[in-house]
Design a protein around this nucleic acid. Sequence first.
DNA 1: GATGAATGAGGCTTCATTCAT
DNA 2: TATGAATGAAGCCTCATTCAT
Lengths: 214, 214, 214, 214
Amino acid sequence: MTPSPERRRELLSTAAEVFAAQGYNATTVRRIADEAGMLAGSLYYHFDSKESMVDEILSTFLNELWAGYDEVLGAGLGPRETVEALVTESFREIDRHRAAVAIYQKESQHLSTQPRFGYLTESRGRFERAWLGALERGVAEGVFRADLDIRLAYRFLRDTVWVAASWYRPGGLHSPEEIARQYLSMVLDGITPREEQARRDRTQRKTQRQTQRP
Amino acid sequence: MTPSPERRRELLSTAAEVFAAQGYNATTVRRIADEAGMLAGSLYYHFDSKESMVDEILSTFLNELWAGYDEVLGAGLGPRETVEALVTESFREIDRHRAAVAIYQKESQHLSTQPRFGYLTESRGRFERAWLGALERGVAEGVFRADLDIRLAYRFLRDTVWVAASWYRPGGLHSPEEIARQYLSMVLDGITPREEQARRDRTQRKTQRQTQRP
Amino acid sequence: MTPSPERRRELLSTAAEVFAAQGYNATTVRRIADEAGMLAGSLYYHFDSKESMVDEILSTFLNELWAGYDEVLGAGLGPRETVEALVTESFREIDRHRAAVAIYQKESQHLSTQPRFGYLTESRGRFERAWLGALERGVAEGVFRADLDIRLAYRFLRDTVWVAASWYRPGGLHSPEEIARQYLSMVLDGITPREEQARRDRTQRKTQRQTQRP
Amino acid sequence: MTPSPERRRELLSTAAEVFAAQGYNATTVRRIADEAGMLAGSLYYHFDSKESMVDEILSTFLNELWAGYDEVLGAGLGPRETVEALVTESFREIDRHRAAVAIYQKESQHLSTQPRFGYLTESRGRFERAWLGALERGVAEGVFRADLDIRLAYRFLRDTVWVAASWYRPGGLHSPEEIARQYLSMVLDGITPREEQARRDRTQRKTQRQTQRP
DNA sequence: GATGAATGAGGCTTCATTCAT
DNA sequence: TATGAATGAAGCCTCATTCAT
């Protein structure tokens, strides 16, 4: 049993595409085989099981992801720059592993109940620590607002980035870097223009003064 | 003397909980029956099929959702207030129909390929028009930034709100209104504090002057 | 448990109609109940089981049938008159018990494998003896042709009569007696007119003479 | 090295045998599989569903039947010869497709309510036109009696032939052609011998004269 | 007499997986 | 490497039947 690694990669790519489109459980091995131009049984020359396919898809993706993340986290950047780099890196991963990310989003909760997929839970933990760390440091250094619930902000950022995999199509209008730039712009500065923010601040101060009088 | 509709609602609630936790496909009818304290076959006294259960769960949810949305959209609010109200209403729906929302998130893409679930696609369309409309008006009136890709911003808002159903637990620390407030605060004003924004504006202007005068 | 016999008869009539139209196995108890304007479970106040319904339908029919047949068989008629009377009686039974006859036709082979329906096999035997007896006597007395396989002729007559239940509709154009007359006319004298028979006899005799003169 | 179509035919033959013996509805897929020496699920490698099995059994049979019938109908025979040829052809089909014919007899009414089996209804129509046509021509040309209800005669002939499938066993005492000869002899000339017919004619004429006198 | 709700057995079907070729 | 045919477990669903009310 020495299947060529190239064929494996092709087949995994096909499988990932189908898993992402239909969901892991709803995808039959036969469907993957159809897409790959072979019979269902033939896939078992290359893989032990359907489960081992998702496993390989997800772990490959997470390995690459953490290679990128670790580089960012080890670069000694400031909190804002760290967040910017993590977001950008994330969109790059979505660009490269769209299907895997989509699978991760939809199935990881369900899969992680099995021991075999323990690394999903583990990864989730590392993820949380990395982001929360950056956010906390940012608040401490005054580059992020202190009046926000930090765990809420974490979830906000995390979800906001990864769900993009559900609509992102590589080779579309925007490059991953451009999407990252826009996302960061919204998250960091908001969708309200500066002048409007200023106007609202003035109005609010006036209102407060009036309310404080009695 | 438990009249039918009440029992149905109980059973649907049970089913929704399991669907949300395990995914529609991974949920067996027997599991739902177990959870409801009956045998699998007995569910068919109340429902035609497993499919008709999700159907009823999702359509009930969407009906209530649109009742709320339509009220907001018909209230003649300004764009910013519309967005605020839609977000708040959404979190309220998540609070009331957490399981249904989670199912909607995970399964709607997959389900909507079937004619029976055509209303999911339709709802998605109405959804998009409502949000895009508010955003466009906002840009036109100067209360939203004009330099952002509006479709990107729409997806950002839409996903951001609904993914919350995957972690939200009713009766937790934050009320839906509180979560809405924090989300809106991030989305509208960003996570960067005013002073930091101002500082960065000054730095940037300086940098631009230096770069422009080579 | 003293259900009124009248209601029983009504319900049995309904059941027979459905069994005849859809087949015994394909008929659900619920369908019968629907047709009778009640719920499936309610039928069990009147009957022990679905099986006991067909049982009662078939045995009632066969009892009546044999009452009529026995009268004919005991009347001391000649063979031809016996056949005529049996056929006529049969069409009268079809007229009165159309559904039961149709059920008998379709299901008796299948049902008679169960001990409970042993009387079906028994009836079949009596039937065969009655008909074969009349045919044999008829051949012996020269009122039926001797050159025919008698068992074949028996099956021919038997089937020919009973299948009529599959298309007969009471209250149609023909009375049972009229149908019996036409059937008997075909079976006894054939569908070829006398003159044509005579013509063919002459032609054949000529042919034989020619063939005999090598 | 058994190519698929052959295995299919084997399995269909097994299935047809069981369907014919037990009835379509009363036959479980497991029973067929048992008879074929495999597990129930394995049948689905070869067929889509239990329904598609009967479908293929019946349509294959009807196709062959109509091939034979069309040849007869296109041969330009006289009405009597047409009837003789159709009957003979029918018994040959019963000989070759006994099980299929038995299924057709028992189930076609029930199955033909489903769109998928529309061809059963269609075939029934062609059937009727073919037979009625021959009978009508026969009456017009004086080779069939004019005093019989032609539709009744049609049903009589049709049923008479096909019910034979319920008792016919290939390889029995009589060849299909021999059975056809005997059936035709009964149908065309009746079971009453010529001399007896003549005697009865005389008696009847006498009786009529006596009755007309008073 | 009838209803509403459930049971439990069993039927059809799907599907991951195996294995000889 | 791949095919063709099968296995076996499990899933969804149906339905005769029961029973408290």
